[in-house]
Amino acid sequence: MGKEIDIFSIVIKLKAIRILPVILLTITMSLILNSQAFAQDFGDSVFLYSRITVIVLLLVFSGAVLLYTKWAKAGKKLFIRKIAGVDAVEDAVGRATEMGKPVLFIPGIADVEDIETIAGIAILGRVARVTAQYDTPLRVPVRYPMVLAASQEVVEGAYAEMGKADSYDKDTVRYVAGEQFAFTATVNGMMMRERPAANIYMGGFFAESLLLAETGNAAGAIQIAGTARPEQLPFFVAACDFTLMGEELYAASSYLSHEPLLLGGLKGQDFVKVLIIISILIGTLLVTFDIGDWYTNLFDVP
């Protein structure tokens, strides 16, 4: 490995890593402070100087993710806490295999430009590998044609990778309806008729979340849900066996992959979260003592 890694190893050994968030935060703040002063001078130009804060944060964020990825690549063991919901995915597919019943997977009802849908499709790839391995039937109803194309590609790829290209049915992923409740009615019908042993909901969900989850519960399926929409989480928590909340959804595919390279990204993200928490605490203190206007202005991006 390169020289950089050695320097990082020394830093870790010195346990200086513990104060790294504070050091990085200080550097970030001084950069933002300078950039903001600069931004006020050049407001109306080709380059939007007023958005420099975002560049600084972007660099810090990207740096942290890349750094941890590099460490992971170098073989450093990264601790990732257990996510019960993700562990349950493989068990649920196993249960379906034993019962000889299908697995129902819904990659949300948002379109493909929504990152939640991409996260859902990434998890679908992992699930499809397991169903292909055990020849468990898989049903993937989708709401948007673009999601249909992407999901078909992923499922087909998973079957091919497991050497089961022949067992792949083109209608495993099917377009159901573009209208939210027409989609829900169709999927609910599928649940009651085919009685899947496992229902996995991963992606962006809206008012149909409880309609789906409650019907799945009535049909006796083990249910795992994951969404980043806070307003739908209570419904999934009430009606599903496991729920991935917020960022857990985005972490799930990396977690399922067990690839250190992907897990490195998660650690980088956690590190930035520590920075944000420190920033919030500083901001809260400053605003409480009525000296925080300059500080809040730093983060005011037009």
Binding site: F61, G246, Y250, S254, G265, Q269
Partner: peptide, 17 residues
């Protein structure tokens, strides 16, 4: 809390992609 966490998760995933 959930929104900030989810936004970071989304940003991290986008970066990885």
């Amino acid at each position: 809390g959930i929104i900030i966490g989810a936004a970071l998760g989304a940003a991290s995933m986008s970066l990885r992609i």
